[in-house]
Design a protein around this nucleic acid. Sequence first.
DNA 1: AAGTGGTCTAGACCACGTG
DNA 2: ACGTGGTCTAGACCACTTA
Lengths: 252, 252
Amino acid sequence: MAGTDGRTTGARYRRLAADLREAIASGAFGSDGRLPSEEQLAQQYGVSRGTVRQALSVLRANGLVTSRRGTRRVVLGTARTQSFMELMSFTLWARSLGEEPGGRTIDITRCTANPLEREQLGLAPGAEIYRVLRLRTLSRVPIMIERTIYVEHVGAMIAGLEPEAISHIEPLTEQGVVFADAEHTVDLVYADAEDAELLGCEEGAPLMRERRRATDPAGTPLEWSEDRYLPGTVSFTVHNSVASTALSRRRA
Amino acid sequence: MAGTDGRTTGARYRRLAADLREAIASGAFGSDGRLPSEEQLAQQYGVSRGTVRQALSVLRANGLVTSRRGTRRVVLGTARTQSFMELMSFTLWARSLGEEPGGRTIDITRCTANPLEREQLGLAPGAEIYRVLRLRTLSRVPIMIERTIYVEHVGAMIAGLEPEAISHIEPLTEQGVVFADAEHTVDLVYADAEDAELLGCEEGAPLMRERRRATDPAGTPLEWSEDRYLPGTVSFTVHNSVASTALSRRRA
DNA sequence: AAGTGGTCTAGACCACGTG
DNA sequence: ACGTGGTCTAGACCACTTA
């Protein structure tokens, strides 16, 4: 519960948030889970109240602590949310589970984007894209099929990787591609012939579908992906509050 | 693009956020979608830069605008996210779609919570709960079956409603029950005999499942619900960014 | 009545992107 | 070099909860 250990890089409020996250996970706030007041934390950590509030707002958005006028904050639960990159990268996600990620690239093609693809990536007529088809495994068991299209300059990097490369996103990040935002949509679809063959299920079998559009910090789309999971292999969880709503329910 | 019209209640930054939301929706920021600088907005609206930033952070969390050091913010899209209550209430949601919400309460029972239910609502052994089973329709077509358990004092209010009441949450809100946070988990399940009969599908047919735990501002659980949708009727969408991650992918 | 978080202000410096 | 958003500070007042 010290106030001086912990990280030394990045913004103060991020380090503080990480510290508090640890303190929460280790049960440092007692059985009732009441946090110190903002003023107390500010003094303990030698920062202003504004910085404390910035740190706490992160924890609040993650559903870790309450926040209401008049009473101290209370611990709601330990960290469940994953980092943004863990959501983008099947490989990172698998590793964080302690499972062995695998993947087989079935096909990579460079071609001219069709109208639908142009809309998904916000491209002009005639733009070139890369289409990538991969089968993903968890501890050698196929669980997901991934159909992704990349804007040209990103796809070119992917095409330069070895076919056996397990992670595609890590090399991209090393080469300076920055993913900043993503929109995920989850629904239910039925396996087509290709799905069935690759996943080893019946044609017409139900699958969980996650569609995802990822952009760079400027808002420019980088990739658009449609992932199909075998039932019983994944679920998606969202935390939502009056103050910050990220989720929406749509008519199909 | 005036700065003086708009709401007159609630926090300044919320009113400002609503104003900016409208301005974005009406295309007031031109074809390139570049927003004025924070300093300019502060002067236009007669507030401090801090308040402007607070308003913009709301829009950012909703995926409406970009935000990066060095450049002005840019419009990403018009509002897609729904209010927190629209997510909690099937009735509100249906109305916002312009469709007619309907519901039939199949069963309400007061009983002692079993161990699983106690864990879901964080209750002590022996606690009483209400179990509610409802069939939900959109424009008279059944699309979802809802199995909800309520803590005792909330369930008692539900039990006092007419059986034909379309909305359960609205009366609760009027009686002072405040929903503040919720955690939603989406996956795929297969219809059991009861699902099949009520939804009019085959037993074993695939359904989209949304499980939800909702709490009051103090973090005390109020309800736990398991909703099952017919395929093709809904999808769930989440916006996610490096700065604020609410979503997580789980091994089933 | 006292304590706490929510809101707002005014000002400062820095890191980054662009011209 | 300049403008921009990101971070941080110090202080103020208010709304709410709790005792």
